[in-house]
Amino acid sequence: MLVIEGLTAGYGGAPVLHGVGLGAAPGKVTCVMGRNGAGKTTLMRAIMGQLRASSGTIHLDGEALHGLPAHEVPRHGVALVPQGRRLFGPLTVAENIEIGLMTRRKGRAVREHVLDLFPRLRERLNQQSRTLSGGEQQMLALARALCLEPKVLLLDEPTEGLQPSMIRLIRDTVLKLKATGVAVVLVEQRVEAVLEVADSVAFMAQGRVTEVLPAHGLTPQSPQFATWVGV
């Protein structure tokens, strides 16, 4: 269980997050929604240790993640698929996956598992990742993160700019991961996509979590979407 309490973090001494609290349970999808500039991506970066928290705590299964060097956080079971994918362009699909595997020692079995999730990547193993389509790049970014066998997977707007078939594939993958007990924190702007997969929805505004609601009580017409997301 990922537990964030009273997290304050920002850039260059200017706080963006103000006392954020959030939880993500195994086998559940927690969606984070909010307008641009609400602090969603900053929250992802703070969880990953890329931004130093000035106060507050982040615990995973009782272990403190706050204060760890950023490269230690993935080793504790947290993986991020960042906005914009950020692959290693000159490397092939196989090499990108290999890099994801290197910090864990299970190699082949994990590689096969992620390639089973994304058979299209298996067909393109020797292709340079910069030459993949947007959807394929997103699959690869997700596959690479899954190589870390995360307990918590952070997805920052994974469907942004993708065609409907790819969006469905990402959704199905999220549901499969959920079924295997991974705690998923999904930053997403599209209400329909959120309601299809979410167990709970956290709304953010101006660096604060304003409301956390169970997803089953929400519909596209729920006023929270208009208030906090502007849709």
Binding site: M48, Q50, P69, A70, H71, E72, V73, P74, R75, A79, L80, P82, R86, F88, G89, P90, L91, I99, G100, M102, T103, R144, L148
Partner: peptide
Amino acid sequence: ENEERSRMLGYN
């Protein structure tokens, strides 16, 4: 290519 991304995969 991307030091920050490498760090996110657990490399120092």
